[in-house]
């Protein structure tokens, strides 16, 4: 059984980490989670990015956040990637497999997966 004691142990480990995070210079992955995004399948896409970041041990450098409707409902699920000093990249019609690929090739490898981007539609 999961216990609160176990949660306390995680907390103690976290306490040292929290101070060193700097979301201003790090990468932000933003997933649209309005009605349109949720209906189109954004929840598992968001969960996949969170899992990829956690598995890669990159939660200090990369934040995954949610946003509302950005007005291109027909392209949902929409994922925006913000990296310091670079243009925003908008990925459209995302799913779990595409999220895995974007994480591996773009977030970790630095190569934008152009076939999934907005400009390509």
């Amino acid at each position: 059984m999961k216990s609160l004691a176990e949660l306390a142990a995680i907390r103690d480990k976290m306490k040292n980490k929290v101070a060193i995070r700097d979301s201003e210079t790090g990468t932000r992955i933003v997933v649209g989670m309005a009605t349109c995004g949720i209906a189109a399948g954004a929840r598992p896409v968001l969960a996949q990015f969170v899992e990829e970041v956690a598995n890669a041990g990159l939660s200090d450098a990369i934040t995954v956040t949610q946003t509302g409707c950005i007005g291109i409902c027909q392209y949902e699920p929409v994922v925006e990637v913000y990296e310091a000093g670079k243009d925003k990249v908008t990925y459209v019609k995302m799913d779990v497999d595409k999220a895995k690929r974007v994480f591996a090739e773009h977030i970790q490898g630095g190569r934008i997966v152009t076939e999934y981007t907005m400009d390509n539609k």
């Binding site: 999961k2 609160l4 176990e6 949660l7 306390a8 995680i10 907390r11 480990k13 976290m14 306490k15 929290v18 969170v50 970041v53 956690a54 939660s59």
Partner: peptide, 20 residues
């Protein structure tokens, strides 16, 4: 609220906490 009592000032949104 109960979790927050344990966590103190560590955010509920931390990936490790969400995983728990």
């Amino acid at each position: 609220l109960q979790l927050r009592e344990v966590l103190g000032d560590v955010s509920l949104g931390e990936p490790e906490i969400i995983a728990w």
